[in-house]
Write a protein that binds this DNA or RNA. Structure first.
Length: 183
DNA sequence: TATACGATCACCT
DNA sequence: GGTGATCGTATAC
């Protein structure tokens, strides 16, 4: 079942904690790619120095200020894209970064010599799912191209671990927050 | 108009 | 462990 706006329109940490174990679905024409989310990070509020939104509202970060359930896609290092999902109410800048996804192909197709493929890193996730700026600001509650499903029962809450966020050494005290969730 | 740098990855030592 | 690739964005002139 597809996650509704109700799911995303809650506290960012709650959404980030519950997303691991859910399924990211990407439809391109007739082809569908499905992967289980295995790692997320929360970025929330004006004061979080690790969040792009701490610099204020700009054309780039506008999506993060928008309604919950929208995809926030941005380019990093000129070569990679990162996928985020906007959370909380419109006007409050918050999002959950999808850091890692495990592809379990339902048809059993071999991917990279293995049946299962772990996409550990937001850049790899976006490369595999063919996510780029065109998907920025799409409504994941309604889009026919990108959304998240819940199948239920696969992951128990006690399998989800938490830790410090990664790659944000510049964020001062904010870098030590335990806002990263993974399986 | 120009410049510096980043929520990364791959490849080098 | 360290660094180059490579470009959109923010910030500074």
């Amino acid at each position: 079942m597809r996650l509704s706006k109700k799911f995303y329109n809650r506290k960012t940490l709650t959404v980030a904690r519950e997303l691991p174990g859910k399924y990211l679905v990407r439809r391109i024409g007739r082809k569908t790619i499905v992967g289980m989310i295995t790692e997320t990070e929360a970025y929330c509020g004006f004061r979080d120095l690790a969040s792009h939104a701490s610099k204020g509202l700009t054309p780039r970060t506008k999506t993060m200020f928008g309604p919950a359930g929208h995809a926030y896609v941005y380019m990093i290092y000129g070569m990679y894209h990162c996928l985020n999902i906007v959370t909380e109410k419109e006007g409050y800048p918050a999002a959950v970064l999808i850091r890692s996804v495990a592809i379990n192909d339902r048809q059993g197709t071999v991917v990279d010599g293995k049946k299962n493929k772990l996409l550990n890193g937001p850049g790899k996730v976006c490369r595999e799912f063919k996510i780029d700026k065109k998907l920025n600001a799409v409504d994941m509650c309604r889009s026919g191209e990108l959304w998240i499903e819940e199948h239920g029962g696969e992951i128990k809450p006690n399998q989800i671990k938490k830790g410090k966020r990664i790659g944000i050494d510049y964020a001062g005290k904010w870098k030590n927050k335990l806002w990263r969730f993974y399986i």
